[in-house]
Design a protein around this nucleic acid. Structure first.
Lengths: 243, 243
DNA sequence: CAGTGGTCTAGACCACGGA
DNA sequence: CCGTGGTCTAGACCACTGA
């Protein structure tokens, strides 16, 4: 199976929503109708619908139908649900991205980092600090820590092109999940020196912990974003569990 | 069926993770084993596991098993995945919350709000502006707009206790989904006057659009949060779709 | 009442990981 | 090779909505 059938259905339906074929607040065809169209069972259609629901495209209503609740994308957003490297987000929004390496060194996980990330204290890591420029404007400084057992070495060339492409294509590391935490902190002198803050005195800090498909917590990254152009979007649902 | 079986299983497993019975980085029993334990089919167990995955508790690994990737909650967080009113979040974190009403008036949706929220221009709305104090510290100012067709009227008493409790218990409105967008803006004079910023000059703006179970977009809210103690967390997954 | 989505079962086959 | 999770089918019954 090249692509799971439910995934194809998901992408087809998503396309119809984004193109406006199924408009804002309209109802989709019923699950039975969709099952006929895609020549599969209702269960498979339901898996595709579950993805649409999770990503905020539609809302299901028992006894009524499935309603479109998203409008064609209005403004660009850099961080949305899903795992997307800054590279990918920049490409999607058609904004040129460049990266300057600030430092690259080896070390071990100290107690504080172990507490914050869940990495094992004392594990060997390689740390990279980078400045990211979007449309030639320096907006993000991030510091990443990789387990050397998963990422044995990095070079300036890799770091300034795409670490993720290197991880996936050369090392065969597959990212499985990332947990992110967003907070706001006062800008440091370094922030002010490095990134474009338009005079504001705080930065958005996105801390993320990443696991690979083998279940290893191999990356911990702290990104300091300029508030300028920062946006994050998600959709939540009331589950029966929460009643 | 009082509670869906998969939901009970989800809650049981989540409890075992939060209590540490299934520890960080450990593997859960296999799906077949869990199906036996809960006397159901593998499909039902899988629905429960899907919830745990979506909420960042575990990660599944084909051929290997299901690994715990969350640690017992370290620090408190106000905004997490899921729909939770500030009331509920404050209760969960055992922080006293109080609310002062600043204004309450009627109006209609103008072009700008229609564009931002998706509400129909010209629809009648009731708008409420409130100041929220956590632990007696004023941290949030929010302005909410409700369709009068769904929420015909509000009183100061309702607004200062809990609008959501009123919606659910009195009006029978059930919230189905909420899409939120987080950005950072420069603090206004009003922000500085009303909320505790510790000298910082920006605020976190959370805009949310809410649908009820009948599929009506009935609420649009903009909350301006002090950066102090603001945190938002979510977990993302690499889907086959994104490869 | 018919049609919709929500839950659950039973069973099949596949892809992957590790011993 | 066996056990794991991933996909899919076929069919049943329930709860809810709206005409």
């Amino acid at each position: 199976m090249a692509q799971a059938k439910y995934n194809q259905i998901f992408q087809t339906l998503r396309g119809r929503i984004e193109s406006g074929a199924y408009g804002f607040l309209e109802l989709l065809p019923s699950e039975n109708t969709l099952a006929e169209e895609f020549k599969c069972t209702r269960n498979t259609v339901r898996k595709a619908l579950a993805l649409l629901v999770a990503q905020g495209y539609v809302q299901t209503m028992q006894g009524r139908g499935i309603q479109v609740i998203s409008r064609p994308r209005a403004t660009s957003t850099f961080l949305v649900g899903g795992i997307e490297s800054l590279q990918e987000a920049a490409a999607r929004n058609q904004v040129p991205l460049s990266t300057h390496m600030i430092s690259l060194e080896e070390g071990v996980v100290d107690a504080e980092m172990a507490m914050a990330s869940g990495m094992t204290e004392g594990a060997e890591i390689i740390s990279v600090k980078r400045l990211r420029l979007l449309d030639d404007v320096p907006l993000i400084v991030d510091t990443s820590y990789f387990l050397t057992s998963v990422v044995p070495q990095l070079t300036q060339q890799i770091v300034e092109s795409s670490i993720y492409a290197y991880l996936e294509e050369v090392l065969g590391v597959r990212v499985a999940s990332a947990t992110r935490r967003i907070t706001v902190e006062r800008a440091t002198d370094e922030d002010r020196r490095l990134i474009h803050l338009e005079g504001m005195d705080c930065v958005v800090v996105v801390s993320s912990v990443t696991f690979d498909s083998a279940g290893v917590l191999f990356e911990y990254t702290r990104s300091r974003h300029s508030p300028v152009d920062f946006a994050f979007q998600d959709t939540a649902h009331r589950l029966p569990a929460e009643r």
